[in-house]
Deep mutational scan, measured.
Amino acid sequence: MGFKLLSKLLVYLTASIMAIASPLAFSVDSSGEYPTVSEIPVGEVRLYQIADGVWSHIATQSFDGAVYPSNGLIVRDGDELLLIDTAWGAKNTAALLAEIEKQIGLPVTRAVSTHFHDDRVGGVDVLRAAGVATYASPSTRRLAEVEGNEIPTHSLEGLSSSGDAVRFGPVELFYPGAAHSTDNLIVYVPSASVLYGGCAIYELSRTSAGNVADADLAEWPTSIERIQQHYPEAQFVIPGHGLPGGLDLLKHTTNVVKAHTNRSVVE
């Protein structure tokens, strides 16, 4: 069995187990497998329904001669939608809004960016022009300005110390501490036991640490421990890039980060 097929099978099995364990909360999309990078042309966006009122959005972007996937989250909030992270750029984010209108038909009224990198804030200006209120932590807003990236308009308070959590509509926002970046936030959907790890969490097929220019490698494993301790009931975990899975993604990420750190020390 090929690795790609095995990865998709694991996603399907995880979703099936969740649907059985929580039949009222989960209505997993039966329309197909989780979209992969090879299936999404740059400039297009796919939506994948995880649970009743919960979707991931998947886009792709060219970077350094390669094409990478990027995940975000959409959560229903009454007759409105909360968006977590842009679709990595203005063109993708405009396509995301169009796809949401086509498939869901509810307005996106608020959006949260989970850290300051372009795959999370690139497209904020498109959201703002569409009347979406954009939010991020003060740290993310400051770092985005320093980096020359787009800056969300509103500040999220109460997320300055490791372990801080605040309720934001249908989700809980959690600051686990520094990891992929010093400002990275985690998003949890309690009604569906869905954990969105953003770039602080890796997919299972990833074996290298990737972009760690703004990471705190020493603190990252401790931050992941905080996530595990705060959300032990999480059933569906979405990484910032690639295929979702279960809580095993947290341990896998820790292993990859520690291996990278150990290699760096040896070198």
Rank of each mutant, 00 (worst) to 15 (best):
V54H: 02
S16I: 15
A200C: 11
V124Q: 14
L24E: 11
G89M: 13
S155V: 14
P244K: 09
V75K: 10
S155D: 11
A95T: 06
K91N: 14
A87D: 01
Y231P: 00
S22N: 07
S223T: 03
E203L: 00
M1S: 13
I84N: 02
L13M: 13
I74G: 04
L106S: 10
L81G: 08
A259T: 11
A51V: 08
D125Q: 07
I151K: 15
I238F: 09
E44I: 04
V132A: 07
R167I: 06
S22E: 09
H230I: 15
R110I: 02
D79V: 08
V256K: 11
S27C: 13
H230M: 11
L47S: 12
S31M: 07
T254P: 09
S31I: 02
T253V: 05
V112I: 05
G197Y: 00
K251E: 09
G245Q: 09
D214E: 08
E219Y: 15
D64H: 13
V75D: 01
S191L: 10
P152C: 14
L47P: 02
G32F: 13
G89N: 13
L159P: 14
S208H: 09
I50V: 08
V75M: 04
A136K: 01
L204E: 03
P23S: 11
V194N: 00
Q229L: 10
S139V: 05
R141W: 12
I58M: 15
P23V: 09
T182K: 05
V265H: 07
R46F: 15
V42C: 14
V132W: 01
D118W: 06
L127I: 06
S155I: 15
F168P: 00
S62G: 07
P221C: 14
A129N: 15
L204K: 11
A213I: 13
V266W: 14
G245Y: 05
G105V: 13
S223G: 10
E99V: 12
A51N: 15
L217R: 05
D214Y: 14
A25W: 10
P190C: 00
I227G: 08
I186H: 00
A94V: 06
S62R: 11
E33I: 07
D29Y: 07
E203Q: 15
H260R: 06
P232I: 15
P138T: 14
E99K: 15
A192N: 14
F63R: 09
A95Q: 11
G245P: 01
H230C: 13
I201F: 15
V54Q: 02
S139I: 13
Y48V: 09
W55Q: 10
K4D: 12
S27P: 05
G32S: 13
H260V: 06
L204D: 13
L204C: 15
L24D: 09
G72N: 05
D248I: 04
W220N: 01
V266Y: 15
P239L: 02
Q49V: 07
L83G: 11
L106G: 09
L6H: 12
S162A: 11
P35M: 07
T182M: 03
Y231F: 13
E225R: 11
W220M: 10
T93D: 00
L13Q: 02
A213D: 14
L5S: 14
L81V: 08
L6I: 05
R110Q: 11
G148T: 14
H230V: 07
Q228I: 02
I50G: 06
W220A: 10
T254R: 10
P176I: 09
A95P: 14
V37N: 03
